[in-house]
Amino acid sequence: MTNLLELNQLSKAFGAVRVSDGLSFALAGGEALGVIGPNGAGKTSMFNLITGTLDADSGDILYAGKSVISLSAAARAKSGMARSFQVPQPFTAMTVFENTLVAATAAAGLSIRDANGHCLQVLDQIGMMDKANDPAGSLTLLERKRLELARALAAKPKLLLLDEIAGGLTEHECRDLVATIRSLRQTGITIIWIEHIVHALLAVVDRLLVLDFGQKIADGDPTAVMADGQVRQIYMGIDADA
């Protein structure tokens, strides 16, 4: 089967800082990839490069077998990529419902009639129905993060990029989130999830990628990756001192 996403020697630098340094990996359709790495490792930059928010210096990105490196962020979104932002980017004066409606009409290309139904379903699934008419600007940080997820789902993605959506959740909420994302996998969505809450990540993903200084440190079975000495040293630096 063909890969849904393929990064080939993807590089991007801001001056001397390399946020992506010859990064390559491939992701099969339906796979769920977890991404970990220290702060500043280039995780969010990788999402920015994949979705076209950031232009790469060199390298290529193949999506569904075609190069998307020269496509705009909007065109990539229309082709089925959706992301949540680590720092939430709500449409503040629009209601929660209208936020999801933007994704359903623009990215998924639904008619307003179909989009209405789809967005109500997403809000119900994410548990935000009681906030549907609130302006997004009035939400708390946690609610804004949940809206990021709702909006990404309203876009009917083939490839879903989640950027630290579990931070700050209670144990109970985190379990709900894991259950939600697991149920998304059942529908065949391919997922890349950046998360510091490793146990939540490991409950969902079947593969783990470790980044540091824009480079791939490890990639493979989550338990094997977590046991890797280099990963333990870089990712859980404290362990190396002990």
């Binding site: 928010t53 229309k78 503040t92 933007v102 623009a106």
Partner: peptide, 25 residues
């Protein structure tokens, strides 16, 4: 009121998010 209006209002509020949700700004 149309779907274009939804996009336009989204651009008003946040261009970055509008772009990444498929709106050709």
């Amino acid at each position: 009121r149309s779907r274009h209006g939804i996009s336009l209002t989204a651009i008003r509020d946040n261009e970055l998010a509008a772009r990444s949700l498929g709106i050709d700004v």
